[in-house]
Design a binder for these strands. Sequence first.
DNA 1: CGAGCGCTTGATTGAGTTCAAAAATCGTGG
DNA 2: CCACGATTTTTGAACTCAATCAAGCGCTCG
Lengths: 192, 192
Amino acid sequence: MYSILKDYLKGKINFTDSQFEEIKHLFAAKTVSKGKVLLQAGEINQHSFFVVKGCLRSYVIDKEGKEHIIQFAPENWWISDLNSYNKQEPAMFFIDAIEDSEVLMNDRGFNEKIAAIVPQADAMFQTLTQNSFRAMQKRLVSHLSATAEERYLEFIKTYPTLALRVPQKMIASYIGVAPESLSRIRKAVAHQ
Amino acid sequence: MYSILKDYLKGKINFTDSQFEEIKHLFAAKTVSKGKVLLQAGEINQHSFFVVKGCLRSYVIDKEGKEHIIQFAPENWWISDLNSYNKQEPAMFFIDAIEDSEVLMNDRGFNEKIAAIVPQADAMFQTLTQNSFRAMQKRLVSHLSATAEERYLEFIKTYPTLALRVPQKMIASYIGVAPESLSRIRKAVAHQ
DNA sequence: CGAGCGCTTGATTGAGTTCAAAAATCGTGG
DNA sequence: CCACGATTTTTGAACTCAATCAAGCGCTCG
C-alpha cells in the first residue's frame, strides 16, 4: 500500500528511504468500499486523501437534489475539499468511493509536517494545487464557450481511461448534462 | 500611487516603512487608458498587476470570436494569468483595461523577492490564490447547477459595486449569457 | 432468478440564443 | 456645452440545444 505512494512521490521529489519511513506515519491506510461517504458537505474537512487503488469522487448536491461531480480521483490522485481543509470552513463538497478503494488519509497540518521532513514537498503540493486551479479554469472556460458535445470529447481526450471506467451518468454529471443527453451525444459522435 | 498599495498590504501583513521602501521597487507604476491590452493569449505572461485605480479584466476569446470574461479587477485587486506566470506557458487569457486605470506591475520572480523582504508575504499570496481557487470552484458549481437568473443574482450580490460600474454586456459575458438574455433577465427580476 | 439500476429512445417542453431593428445612453469634437 | 455618431440596451420573433417526462430494454448482483 505505501509502496504505491513511495513510487508516486519518487517521480516528483527526492528523498531517502529513512525519510520515507517518517513520512509514512503521516498517512492512515484505509479500505473503503463502494458507496462509502468520506466527507459530507457542511462538515469541516480534516483530511485529504491519496488514492492507492480504486476511485473516489467529489461532488455537490444542488437544491433540487441533483449531484454535480467536481472531480474524479483514480489511482495516484489526491482528493479533498481544499477550501474547507485549508480554512476550516464548512465543506462545499461530498467525497465518496465509486469503487472499492484503498486510500491513504492524512490530517490537517500534514503539509507542514511533510515539508519539515522533505522541504521539496511544499513546492510539490503547490504545483499540484496550481494544476488543479488550471484544470478548474479550463473547465469553466469550456462551460462558457463549448457545447455539450465538445465538453464530452474534451473529457474523453483528457481522461481516456476514466471514460471507460466510470458510469456514463457520472460522466454526464461531470460535464454538466443530463444522462439522456449524453446518451444521445454518444450516439451522434459514433455515427460520424 | 504606492500609498494605496501600502494601505492594502497593511491590512494583510505587518511591515516597517523601510521594508515598504524596498518592496516598492518591485513594482512599476503604469497608467493605462481604457481599451489598452496588457496581455494577449498565447504570450508568456511575465507580469501580474495590482490595480490602484480603474478596472481591468481577463477574458478568453473562443473559436467563434466571442469574449468570455474570467475576472474583473477593480481597485485593490490583483490580476494575472497565473498559470502562464507560474509555469511560463502560453497564456489562455487576454487582460485589458475597461476603464482608464493606474496599475502597479511586477515581474516574475516577484513572489520570492517580496518574501525575502517580508516573509509573511508568501502566506498572503497563497491565501489570495486559495481565494480565487474557491471563487472559481463556486462559479463552476453555479454553471453546473444554477439558471442564468440565479447566476445574475449571485453576481450582483457578490459584486454589488461592480454591477453598477461595469457595462451590462460584460456582466452577461461573465455570467455566461447573451447580452439580450441578460437584458430580459433584468426585466424579469425588476417585475417581481 | 428477479428487482433495481443504467442506458437508450421517443415525444414534448423550455431556457436561452440568434437575428433584426428600435430606443437609450455615452463620449467626443466642434 | 451641445450635437451627432457610436455603442449599449431593449424588444420582438423564430429557432435550437439540451432538459424533462415517460417507457422499454438489458445487465448484474444479491
